[in-house]
Design a protein around this nucleic acid. Structure first.
Lengths: 338, 338
DNA sequence: GTGAAAGCGCTAACAT
DNA sequence: ATGTTAGCGCTTTCAC
């Protein structure tokens, strides 16, 4: 508990022979509104700047019942996607004068519930959450307690809370259409965690696009089961063993794709000739592989920015508005692998 | 500003016909110490649990001048290394009952300075910082204001603050020794940002190992300049054009290595035969490339854990102790690329 | 064993 | 145009 200057409004006021309230009013920027003499304002402002006096946000929060802090509850910060999300949320929050309390659920609902409780105790003004999925009663509880909330990336529909996500359905659809255009008719898919809404949307988009192209979906084309490279590796092995071997694969996460590449290489097959690969989520290394990976890019930066902004809109609103469902477009980047 | 229950000590006390002080004492776990009747304690405890009453950390912090929150100031959360660091710091903090305020400096000293100020205003109890490097007067200021601090990964010696870092010197040394053992005599190096202490240590270790092996360092072997893949690509191109072309490269970051691989492939050279590559920092994809990358692994998880623990030790201590310098061992993992 | 009262640093309603 | 006062929800002395 350290203040840079060690001074507070009281000591500043004493030093200037003014009352704390006057100091408070001026430093809150309401000097003109309350008609404090220009002269006095100047004195206060310059003295504050010089002595490095800043309001104690704790005391302030206690009084006005706002902490100007938001919680960011994500399933796994070591996942580059969420790291990038955290980055843009933090930047947007700082711009708006909010601090960010970070909580990492480690993909465990139990940890997520605990974090939710701890954050509530900290009296955050609002929460941005990418739910782990599965049980969400702890998030329900927050909602009932009127916690302003925005869901991002992963969406729990039943929560009835504003959400910001990429067009996962459309992104998968685009990828499949691209593959179809390249002449593929047997297109498999490596899925991530099925309980995850983003994954579910992608699988739906994949199936819809197959239908559109007059291709009958076969359930043995659905491999994977989580977002790991291992899952991609074994899933691809299973797919390659199929009697009707797929000529293309859509992976729902880039580690899945990496696993796929691995299996393909070990079989001495060629990409994209023997097997074309498209995957969700770009990464610095995706374009550096040979062949470079074709990817469906999510607008991560915008996702975080938008989620933060939506939350701030909710916080600024006097009364609760209806939950919005915001979808940001994905972008297909075709490179060598397809 | 939401409480899950909407209740506080006062309402609980009223409900039980007790005073706030008694409730406070019991819920602070000092019931026995102050000799509150077992019976009363039980009533309070069970009622609190049932009604979900938790202390308002804000009011608490204001009173006892402790927020049980720490700041985590890092240069770039989208860098997987720092993301992993954040993850372990957050977990360790939560275990110890601390919340984590995240601040991302985006590798800019100016942003770092602003974040430092904002965090101080939030009255964090302590700070874990991986300095951007360059100017550090803002960190000096925090130190002078007695902010409990721990540096991690990147270390500013002049700050005289406890630091936790990997054995960068030793790690580079080990890598070079390994290459020498494989018969290499012309070993180049792709460095990251020179102003970064971790990079500087690595370069020193690299040079020391060359000296040890009786190899004279030549300054044209030093390429790169930042941690990007581009830097690795162009640096490697330069190295390959040398009259005394290196047979091995040590990269100080995995994107640098990725860039190197790229250049090597485009030249139709073979790894590790034409050029061996070892790099700092493992990544999920490093072992999935072909050939798989040999890497110097930093114990990221431990780095974060240790930094947090050291900070908590400082926070628990009554008076300030001397700054420690903690070094955690790196590990060389030899794979196909060397 | 428990309660009353003061105070942490701020804001806001109510003086003047 | 500025000061006085009460109070946010806790902890902590001091009282009984």
């Amino acid at each position: 508990m350290v203040t840079l200057s060690g001074m507070n409004f009281k000591s500043l006021a004493a030093h200037l022979n003014l009352s704390v309230s006057t100091v408070s009013r001026v430093l809150a920027g309401r000097g003109d509104e309350v008609r404090i003499a220009k002269e006095t304002q100047k004195r206060i402002l310059s003295a504050a700047a010089e002595m490095g006096v800043q309001p104690n946000e704790l005391a302030r929060g206690l009084r006005i019942k706002k902490t100007h802090a938001i919680g960011l509850l994500i399933p796994d910060i070591s996942n580059p996607f969420f790291a990038a999300l955290a980055r843009s949320v933090e930047q947007e929050a700082r711009k708006a004068g909010y601090a960010v309390l970070l909580a990492d659920a480690r993909e465990l609902v139990s940890v997520e519930a605990e974090c939710a409780r701890l954050l509530a105790n900290r009296h955050i003004d609002g929460l941005i959450v990418a739910p782990v999925g599965g049980d969400s009663s702890h998030l329900e509880a927050l909602k009932i307690a009127q916690m302003p909330m925005v869901q991002v990336d992963r969406v729990i529909e039943s929560l009835d809370v504003t959400s910001v996500a990429a067009s996962n359905f459309r992104g998968a659809q685009d990828a499949v259409r691209h593959l179809v255009k390249r002449g593929h008719r047997t297109i498999a898919c490596l899925q991530g965690t099925p309980s995850n809404s983003a994954n579910a949307e992608r699988v739906l988009g994949y199936k819809a696009a197959l239908l559109d192209a007059g291709i009958k979906f076969r359930k043995e084309w659905l491999a994977g089961g989580d977002y790991s490279a291992d899952s991609g590796r074994s899933g691809t092995a299973r797919l390659l063993a199929l009697s009707s071997r797929p000529t293309a694969i859509l992976a729902m996460g880039n580690l899945l794709a990496l696993g796929a590449l691995n299996t393909v290489r070990s079989r001495k097959l060629l990409i994209p000739d023997d097997l074309a690969v498209v995957t969700f989520d770009d990464a610095p290394w995706a374009s550096l592989l040979s062949p470079a990976l074709s990817v469906v890019v999510q607008p991560v930066e915008e996702l975080g920015q938008r989620a933060a902004r939506e939350l701030f809109v909710i916080l600024a609103a006097r009364k609760s508005s209806r939950a919005k469902k915001i979808t940001l477009q994905t972008r297909l980047v075709v490179r060598g692998s397809s």
